[in-house]
Nucleic acid binder design. Structure first.
Lengths: 342, 342
DNA sequence: ATTGGCACTCGCGCCGGTGGAGTGCCAGGA
DNA sequence: TCCTGGCACTCCACCGGCGCGAGTGCCAAT
């Protein structure tokens, strides 16, 4: 029982500190939360919590603030994910339904996530390795110049310019187009790349234009760099972190510019459907101690292939944030899934 | 002559203040710049400059800082655009050459501009109204579901999903494809839209699938919303503005989230090839007093159709920034031009 | 018109005092 | 064994006063 109350005290401290941004004292605690005990009792509890390294006081005779470890415990055992309101759900739904293509879905999701959490939102592009080739279009821009457009089942479109050594007439281009399409349409990306490579060695003379086009296509198919793209939104929410300029704001701004860093942040979140919370120095980017990352995987179909999440100060509303992250991931998965299969 | 020296003093004040970020006094001025006069003389000049509203002292017995009006004069009459180093030019060139498509050119440009100026860079997408339709591809994803891909001469690709009321077989799709292509390929966007509208009323029954596809295409052709897209980079440079949190950083973060605001910032810059400088409250966004905007137009061919630039604190290195903005715009125009015509 | 001299002003940083919030501890009571 | 009220204590945040120094404005001399 006493242990239980102690945890209740921890929860109360976290909640109060998150909302007031100020160290919280024993008296304020008993007043604001209806724990049926006296401030003195709470003080004793706080002493224990401090010994366990869950809370910490900036200086003697100040209130307590949660440590990273305290937040950790709070998230793991105390936080009840607070469900979104019906209005919020409706907003998410209608906002995302309006998207016209994959880019748009991603853009809208970041925005949404940033608004819901009032944090900086990060969304990785949907990963394509599971998607198939829908169509390849070859257009002659000039006799010696082709535009190759690769259309994937996910709705993603890749385009590449090809310079040829020699000219090609319409018939040859048409020939090439149907040849390539026959080889790859309906295939997974990896398989398609293999099929093309075979096409190159088997059918075409090494010096022919097919070779060049096929080469470019193989590149485009194997090029996962666009999977690695990350979109960021809600940077304006950084403006709320007036304090912690050097501990939070500066490192975040720097991190947000570096796609690589962002990918590392999202990186380990793609396992399973759960929401991952990394608090303070637990993260892979040491400059971002002082911040927390809430991520989850998403993706069309059963696989969780890509990731999204938010970055914010350790002092944040975890239950609310986790709920929002999870919700956006689910809606996004659903939308992508529909586009993919329908 | 005395008037000349007074301007030299203003120039010196601007330069010193920009580099030191501190109010500059008479003594420091004569030391750091080789004006061959005594501090007292400079003080007299400063008194005059202050009366003219070109400089201003935060409080009695402090150094002077330039006013917006002072910067204005500096930019208009004193700033000699400093040419980029050969190394910088080479860097720009090689960096932009590596781009694979329009999106990539834009992304690389923002990055480049941010690095060169150490400010927040803003690049508007190239405007398409001058470009022509290269090809329209219609792919059947399912009997009742089409993917329409619009390929433009600028290299831009637009895609739209079309849901049909009834099913369509391969032959019908092929028919539709060639019909549409015959109508629009080679046309400017506006003209193409008209041609399509005519196609709809003339040839197809109103309830046929053509009608739906054509409708979507007309939308896509007339939809200039992607022209309105703006890409931002170098936000990490905001971290240098430790001071002026409320006057510079917060409003900028907010502005950067709003595409509309950014477009207003770039908006008036597309006339002619000159670099436009808007200082402090001169700009169209009143929250951004305290910041300056350096923009210029760019575009393939002769027309300046789109815009790019940077946003930073009024206290910035105008000559260097202007040079960088101009250079990036030129290189970008060149690259787009090559892609367009070759 | 320029210059050196000089008194003056004002912000910044330092210092010590004060008020108050919050603590730790203890002794008494359930 | 746990809770509670009381009490002395600690330490920060705030405030006003003070000296320093940078930088000015003015003036008389050249």
């Amino acid at each position: 029982m006493v242990e239980e109350r102690r945890l209740a005290v921890l929860r109360a401290i976290v909640e109060d500190y998150v909302s007031t941004e100020e160290p919280v004292g024993s008296k304020a605690l008993v007043e604001r939360h209806g724990l049926g005990v006296s401030p003195a009792t709470v003080r004793n509890d706080m002493a224990v919590l401090e010994e366990e390294g869950l809370i910490h006081q900036p200086h003697t005779s100040a209130g307590r603030i949660p440590t990273d470890k305290g937040y950790r415990l709070f998230v793991d055992r105390l936080g009840t994910v607070k469900p979104l309101t019906a209005a919020e759900k409706r907003a998410i739904s209608t906002f995302l339904e309006g998207a016209v293509d994959v880019d748009d879905v991603v853009r809208r999701s970041v925005r949404l996530l940033a608004q819901l959490t009032r944090q900086v939102a990060v969304v990785q592009y949907p990963i394509l390795s599971q998607s198939t080739v829908r169509h390849v279009e070859v257009v002659a821009l000039a006799p010696h110049r082709l535009l190759v457009v690769l259309i994937l089942s996910s709705g993603r479109v890749e385009q590449r310019l090809v310079e040829l050594d020699r000219d090609l007439d319409e018939a040859q281009v048409g020939d090439l187009r149907s040849q390539v399409n026959r080889a790859v349409v309906g295939q997974r990306l990896g398989v398609a790349a293999d099929a093309l490579a075979r096409l190159r060695t088997d059918e075409a003379p090494a010096d022919g234009p097919t070779s060049e086009v096929v080469g470019v296509l193989v590149d485009a198919l194997s090029d996962h760099s666009s999977d690695q793209r990350v979109v960021v939104g809600g940077t304006a929410n950084l403006a709320r972190f007036g304090d912690g300029f050097d501990t939070v704001l500066r490192p975040m701004l720097e991190a947000l510019e570096e796609q690589v860093v962002l990918l590392r942040l999202l990186g380990e979140a793609t396992t399973g459907g759960a929401v991952t919370v990394r608090i303070g120095a637990e993260g892979p980017v040491e400059e971002l101690a002082g911040t927390s990352v809430v991520t989850t995987g998403y993706g069309a179909g059963a696989d969780m292939l890509s990731a999204l999440g938010i970055v914010g100060p350790t002092r944040m509303d975890y239950p609310g944030t986790m709920a929002a992250v999870r919700a956006v991931a689910r809606y996004m998965s659903r939308i992508l899934d529909e586009n993919n299969n329908a």
